[in-house]
Amino acid sequence: MQLNTIQPGAGSKHAKRRVGRGIGSGLGKTAGRGHKGQKSRAGGYHKVGFEGGQMPLQRRLPKRGFKSASLKYNAEVTLSELQALGAAEVDVSTLKAAGLVPQLAKNVKVIKSGELSAKLSLKGIGATAGAKAAIEAAGGTLG
């Protein structure tokens, strides 16, 4: 094989459809644009969602909801995940290393989901009231 013999794969390249080139082509005269109107004209089109001057749907409907920008920095971990972790001392870096919370996480909170029998010492991690009771019942501490 030489550089001057390389060709694209069969069927991978095809000619662009040439419109407006006479009656015989089947796409002459109006070139598939129909008759008159904004869409038939050169340079005549509109922005996305434009409804001809009528108030667009996206502006007629009420605004709803809110998503906090700080949400991506908050993470939660369950009691059952802590049980499976099997570490005596747990902090945010331990959880990140184990892949239980995302690397972006700054604030971590333990939620009461599942059972905990291991004695844990939590450092710099929050907990819900139910989770705190479960951790202390197992002989653990929150730091």
Rank of each mutant, 00 (worst) to 15 (best):
K119G: 01
G24P: 05
G126T: 01
R60V: 00
A134R: 02
G37Q: 09
R60L: 01
H35N: 14
L85V: 03
H35E: 14
P102R: 05
P62N: 10
Y45L: 10
M1N: 05
G44V: 05
G126Q: 07
V48P: 04
L142E: 08
K106H: 03
L85C: 00
Q58T: 02
L27W: 10
L85G: 02
P56Q: 04
V90P: 00
R59G: 00
G86E: 06
V92R: 02
S80H: 14
V92T: 04
L122K: 00
S113C: 00
L61N: 07
K119W: 03
A131H: 04
T94C: 06
Q83D: 07
M1C: 02
S70M: 11
G124L: 04
L104D: 04
L71A: 15
Y45D: 14
S68A: 15
N74V: 05
R33H: 12
L122Q: 03
A98D: 07
N4C: 05
E89H: 03
H35M: 14
L142F: 07
L57H: 07
R41E: 14
G44N: 13
A15D: 12
R60N: 00
Y45T: 15
S121L: 01
A98S: 12
K67Q: 11
L85T: 03
G130R: 09
F66T: 12
G52D: 08
K39L: 10
I125F: 01
R33D: 02
A75S: 15
Q7C: 05
L57Q: 07
S121N: 09
G99Q: 11
A129Q: 09
Y73E: 11
S113R: 05
S80E: 15
S70Y: 12
G49K: 06
G9T: 08
I23N: 14
Y45V: 06
K67T: 13
S25T: 15
K109M: 03
A98R: 12
I125A: 01
G65E: 01
G32A: 15
A131P: 04
L27G: 10
R18F: 07
K16M: 12
N74A: 05
K39A: 15
A137R: 11
K106C: 00
V101N: 01
A15C: 09
R17D: 06
A87I: 01
R41S: 13
D91L: 00
E81M: 09
R33C: 06
G139H: 03
N107S: 08
S68N: 14
L57C: 03
K67F: 12
H14E: 12
K29T: 15
K119S: 08
I23P: 06
G126K: 00
A118N: 12
G140T: 03
V108P: 00
G99Y: 08
T128V: 08
A118S: 14
G140I: 02
